[in-house]
Simulated assay, not measured.
Amino acid sequence: MSKRHDAKYKIDRRMGQNIWGRPKSPVNRREYGPGQHGQRRKGKVSDFGTQLKAKQKLKGYYGSISEKQFRGIYQEASRMKGDTGANLIGLLERRLDAVVYRAKFVPTVWAARQFVNHGHVKVNGRRVTIPSFRVKVGDLIEVKESSKQLGIVLEAVQLAERDVPEYVEVDHHKMTAKLARIPELNDVPYAVIMEPNLVVEFYSR
């Protein structure tokens, strides 16, 4: 599991956007970057800078995946048939921690990674502790029986700030979920605009 090097709100401020749509994000109050010179860090951004920011934003959204792992996902997406950017999004949304987050079993992507890592989730009846585990369409994801009453789970189910997307089928009474289909970019409920095409351009240089 990659380490959480950056606080999630620090990522928001660096990007100048509330990338998870969280009501407590400092970007809701001030849109400039962190540090004493944050307000002055404006100016023309190069094509490389725009592509880098798009990559950092998408990578950060999924819990700051390590660069090695993220590049590996991109390379796999580029080998698949069809649009590489769309394939990249599909692979990211098939991560077990992403599905757990989308199903609203936990409140944040960071919590989803920890939740899986600590053994609270089963896939098709077997405990899986790898956040990057690749979920297939139709797989049954469930919260372990002894974990269903954890405060973090009960809190997440009640969250009004986001909804479960259509491509994830959820039963919050049984605490189970299924990936109904692999989503397109427009299906994914990002709080801000993600630009996987720029990520592709970044790695294609």
Score class of each variant (00 low, 15 high):
Arg102Tyr: 01
Arg40His: 11
Glu184Ala: 10
Ser64His: 08
Leu140Lys: 13
Glu169His: 09
Met175Val: 04
Arg126Val: 13
Lys59Trp: 00
Gly38Glu: 12
Val109Phe: 14
Arg95Cys: 02
Lys8Ala: 02
Arg29Asp: 12
Gln75Ile: 12
Pro131Arg: 11
Pro131Met: 11
Val168Arg: 10
Asn186Gly: 07
Ser204Lys: 13
Ile11Pro: 00
Arg95Tyr: 05
Gly16Asp: 05
Gln51Ser: 06
Lys59Ile: 04
Gly33Ala: 14
Leu92Gln: 03
Arg94Ala: 08
Ser66Trp: 09
Tyr61Met: 05
Ala98Cys: 11
Ala156Asn: 01
Ala112Ile: 03
Gly38Leu: 11
Asp139Ser: 05
Arg94Gln: 15
Glu184Gly: 00
Leu88Asp: 03
Asp47Ser: 12
Met194Phe: 11
Arg29Asn: 10
Ile141His: 01
Gly49Cys: 07
Pro23His: 03
Glu195Ala: 13
Val143Thr: 08
Val135Tyr: 10
Ser147Pro: 01
Glu145Ile: 13
Trp110Thr: 15
Asn18Gln: 04
Glu67Arg: 14
Lys81Gln: 14
Tyr167Cys: 05
Val170Arg: 12
Leu159Ile: 11
Pro183Lys: 00
Lys59Thr: 07
Arg79Glu: 13
Val157Ile: 15
Ile19Arg: 06
His120Asn: 14
Gly82Pro: 09
Ala103Ile: 10
Val128Lys: 12
Pro196Tyr: 06
Pro183Asp: 05
Ser132Lys: 07
Tyr101Pro: 03
Phe133Asn: 02
Ile182Lys: 10
Val128Gln: 04
Gly85Leu: 05
His5Ile: 14
Gly35Phe: 00
Gly72Glu: 14
Tyr190Asn: 00
Ala180Cys: 01
Val170Trp: 07
Glu67Ala: 11
Gly85Ile: 11
Ser25Asp: 00
Gln69Asp: 15
Tyr32Trp: 14
Phe105Ser: 06
Val200Asn: 07
Val192Gln: 06
Leu52Gly: 00
Phe105His: 06
Glu142Pro: 10
His120Gly: 09
Leu159Glu: 11
Gln51Thr: 07
Arg205Asp: 09
Ala103Pro: 07
Arg13Thr: 12
Leu96Trp: 02
Tyr61Val: 03
Ile11Glu: 05
Gly63Ser: 12
Gln56Tyr: 02
Gly38Pro: 02
Leu92His: 10
Gly21His: 03
Leu198Pro: 01
Gly21Val: 04
Thr129Asn: 15
Asp47Val: 13
Gly60Ser: 11
Pro23Lys: 02
Leu179Tyr: 03
Ile73Gly: 08
Thr108Asn: 04
Gln158Lys: 15
Val100Gln: 06
Gln39Met: 14
Tyr74Gly: 04
Ala111Gly: 10
Gly138Tyr: 07
Gln69Lys: 12
Met175Thr: 08
Asp83Met: 06
Ile73Phe: 10
Asn18Trp: 07
Lys24Asp: 15
Gly49Pro: 07
Glu169Gln: 13
Tyr32Lys: 11
Val188Lys: 09
His5Glu: 09
Ile11Lys: 15
Val99Ile: 14
Phe70Pro: 06
Val168Ala: 03
Glu161Tyr: 08
Gln149Glu: 12
Trp20His: 13
Arg113Tyr: 01
Ala191Asp: 11
Ala191Leu: 02
Val168Met: 14
